[in-house]
C-alpha cells in the first residue's frame, strides 16, 4: 500500500511537472507550431491526471479526440506561420498580475475541498450517456461532426480559390 502510494506520488509529480511546464511553453514559445505541440502535451498530461483520478474512459477520450484536435491546430498554425508573435509589454505585466491573482484565488477556493478519487468504469458513464444525458450526447456528437466537416470544406474551398 505504502509502495503504491509512492509510485502514485511519483507519477503525479512527473505529470504535474510536464503539464505545467508544457502550459508555460504554450504561452511562451516563439513559434505557433511549438505552442500547438505543447498544447498536445498539456492534453496528454491532463489525460494522465484523469486516469489517476479514476476516469480511464475520459482519459482515453481526451487523448484521442482532444490531442487529435491538436493536429488541426498545428496544421493551421503552419499555414499562418508568417509573422512572429508580438507581446505588448504593458499588457504583459497586467496579464501576469491577473494570472497570479486568479491562480491564488482559485487555490484559496479549492483549499476547503476534501475527498479521495474512486474508480469509474466506462459502463457507468456510457449508461449515463445513453440514458440520462442522451440528448446532450446527440447534440455533442452532431456538433463535433458538423464542425469538422465545416472546417474541412472551408479549408478545401480556400485551397480551391
Amino acid at each position: 500500500m505504502f509502495q503504491a502510494n509512492i509510485v502514485e506520488g511519483l507519477i503525479f509529480t512527473l505529470a504535474a511537472a510536464l503539464t505545467i511546464a508544457s502550459a508555460a511553453l504554450v504561452v511562451s514559445a516563439k513559434s505557433l507550431v511549438y505552442s500547438a505541440f505543447f498544447l498536445a502535451l498539456v492534453g496528454a498530461g491532463n489525460a494522465v491526471f484523469m486516469a489517476m483520478l479514476g476516469f480511464p474512459v475520459i482519459s482515453l477520450f481526451q487523448l484521442s479526440v482532444y490531442v487529435g484536435a491538436a493536429v488541426t491546430f498545428i496544421l493551421f498554425s503552419i499555414t499562418m506561420f508568417r509573422k512572429p508573435v508580438r507581446i505588448e509589454p504593458t499588457a504583459g505585466i497586467l496579464a501576469l498580475d491577473a494570472a497570479v491573482l486568479a491562480t491564488a484565488g482559485l487555490l484559496y477556493a479549492f483549499q476547503s475541498v476534501t475527498g479521495t478519487p474512486v474508480s469509474v468504469g466506462f459502463k457507468e458513464i456510457s449508461s449515463l450517456l445513453i440514458g440520462k444525458y442522451r440528448f446532450a450526447l446527440i447534440i455533442a456528437s452532431l456538433a463535433l461532426v458538423t464542425t469538422l466537416i465545416e472546417a474541412i470544406t472551408l479549408a478545401m474551398r480556400g485551397e480551391m480559390k
Binding site: 505545467i20 497586467l94 496579464a95 482559485l106
Partner: peptide, 15 residues
C-alpha cells in the same frame, strides 16, 4: 489552478 493562471496570462498578453 496553475493551468488556469498560465492560460489566462497567455490569453491576455497575446494578439
Amino acid at each position: 489552478a496553475c493551468l488556469f493562471g498560465i492560460g489566462l496570462y497567455g490569453l491576455l498578453s497575446s494578439r
